[in-house]
Simulated scan of single mutants.
Amino acid sequence: MSDPLKFLVVDPLAGVQTFARQLLQSRGFVADQILCCADTDTALAQGLAFKPHFLITDWFAKAPMTGLQLFQRLREAQPALHLSLMSFDVTPEHQAEAQAHGAYFLLKKPFTAEQLKAEVTRSLEALAKTSPGLHDQLRDTMRAARPAPRPPLPVIPPQPVIKPGDKVRYQGAVHVAQHVVHRHSETVVQLKGQAGFVSVEKLQPV
């Protein structure tokens, strides 16, 4: 393969996107080789032009286009596309489906940054073994990566999966989620009948 290896990371949590980008850059991949998106529709629109070689995506079970459907659509334009998945809900059926699509891993959320690092590293090593052309590129890229001080790895916190219309418990009372917004590094929810937004970490699904 002569084209630089490119990665598409798709996850609604900005923290997951940020860490995945930092992890890949620490492996020697430059910013132009990494595209991050928060939803599958945006990922499809940008991914068709970006033409990634490796897709790391949330399962997006409730979205109109799931992570697996995104993979299938992108693979029509990029037949050699490789897949890895993340999901809060990992069932035997999901594992079998991921395996059937050739996914390198299906990582259960919440996970630590160390767990994601281990899975991505293992995937790149496996990818190099199955593709001789990639072996030299990965070797050269990772060799060129400058060693940097290792900061403490952040823990990606568990976040309840809440969507508009769901009932949630907040300050001892039951409310209905009206709007769910992902901004910066957090997810906030506007409750029906209330003006402000509440951090998703303060809510409990009912």
Rank of each mutant, 00 (worst) to 15 (best):
A128L: 06
T91D: 10
A77W: 05
P92H: 09
F111Y: 15
T112N: 07
A148R: 11
E114I: 10
L83G: 04
Q78Y: 03
V90P: 02
S87W: 12
M86L: 15
A118Q: 15
S123P: 04
M86F: 03
L81S: 04
D140R: 15
P92V: 06
A144M: 06
D89L: 07
R122S: 07
A80D: 15
L138R: 02
R139N: 09
P110S: 09
K109G: 02
M86I: 05
V120A: 13
A100V: 00
L83T: 06
A98V: 07
E114L: 15
E119Y: 04
L85F: 08
Y104A: 14
E97A: 15
Q99D: 10
D89G: 00
A100T: 05
D140P: 01
T91A: 07
D136V: 00
E125M: 05
P79C: 02
K129P: 04
H82T: 06
L107Y: 05
A103F: 02
M142D: 02
L107I: 06
Q99Y: 05
S87N: 08
T91Y: 06
H82I: 05
L81D: 06
G102E: 11
F88C: 11
A100S: 06
P147F: 06
S84F: 09
T91P: 08
P110W: 10
S131H: 12
A118D: 15
P147A: 03
Q78H: 11
H82D: 10
D89M: 02
A145D: 03
P132F: 00
A77Q: 07
L124S: 09
F88E: 15
E119V: 03
R143K: 13
A103Q: 05
L85A: 09
K108T: 13
S123R: 07
A113L: 08
L124K: 07
H94V: 09
A144C: 04
L124D: 09
M86H: 08
A144I: 01
